[in-house]
Design a protein around this nucleic acid. Sequence first.
DNA 1: CGAAGATACTTGCGATCACAACTATTCACT
DNA 2: AGTGAATAGTTGTGATCGCAAGTATCTTCG
Lengths: 153, 153
Amino acid sequence: MPTNWLSDSEQHAWRMFITTIPDLNAALEADIAAHGLTMGDYEVLVFLSEAPDSRLRMCDLATALRLSPSGLTRRLDGMVKAGWVDRASCSADRRVMYAHLTAAGLEKMSVAAPDHVASVRRHVLDQLGTDGVEQFGELFGKIRQHLHGLQPA
Amino acid sequence: MPTNWLSDSEQHAWRMFITTIPDLNAALEADIAAHGLTMGDYEVLVFLSEAPDSRLRMCDLATALRLSPSGLTRRLDGMVKAGWVDRASCSADRRVMYAHLTAAGLEKMSVAAPDHVASVRRHVLDQLGTDGVEQFGELFGKIRQHLHGLQPA
DNA sequence: CGAAGATACTTGCGATCACAACTATTCACT
DNA sequence: AGTGAATAGTTGTGATCGCAAGTATCTTCG
């Protein structure tokens, strides 16, 4: 007895979505792995490289990455060991630890980023076409706005 | 130095996507948790309830769920313990184990499914509108087709 | 028929992550 | 100033999952 309380169009949209997401994740993960990175690592590099002074407070980075505090602590452990990030304490607030991008991390980032962008293009953007990209952003903007309305409650 | 080798429209689309997906997952997970299920468990129930005789071979179920064989073994361990699924061996091929939906599993499914569908509607479909749902399915169909072309290689 | 290889599943092990508990520090309010 | 609440981060514990290795069974082909 299939769950059929969705119209055909809805059913189709949802099925396409949930069956595609894991495969897309896997494809992106596989591509970035060529640089010895996971997508998680890569995202850390992205956020840090875009931040003022190439550093962020742990809690801000955790929020940005949608990671729990402990999850971030451990992800950074690995990245510190790899030499891409180091920890710096904050003189103004001694509870705070900064995650700071090292030169090696920036270098890794600048090598990996073009490949990752190409990967995103190949697997997603190129498949959608110009109009499709526009629609894609708009649709997720709507979902995002709805979800964001739930968060601060 | 932001990675800016994407047009504004592409940048926007991609950012909306990658920031929304984890939140959407979390929202769906939170809703289904009211039934004592994870999304992973729920998906098992869906596939089994739609299968002939309410059962599937482990390997087919693993493929459907995009789960490794060992991952499925352990997920089923939990669901067997919960009484929603049982294992049945196959007389025709004794390597095979069937995952089989129990009456309790079907009951759980029939109670949880309406809520889950409502959750999908609320968080996604209702936000997109009729045209949006159509576009959504089409866009992911394109990505899916591309990714599927990579799999069997 | 019988050996080589393929297939189905499970188990050992390690990686990742969330939750809860804990320490350290800062903030708010009297 | 001083106490209680809030905030930042780490560590202990347990859940989930993938990979590699192991066992059992089946298939293929000489």
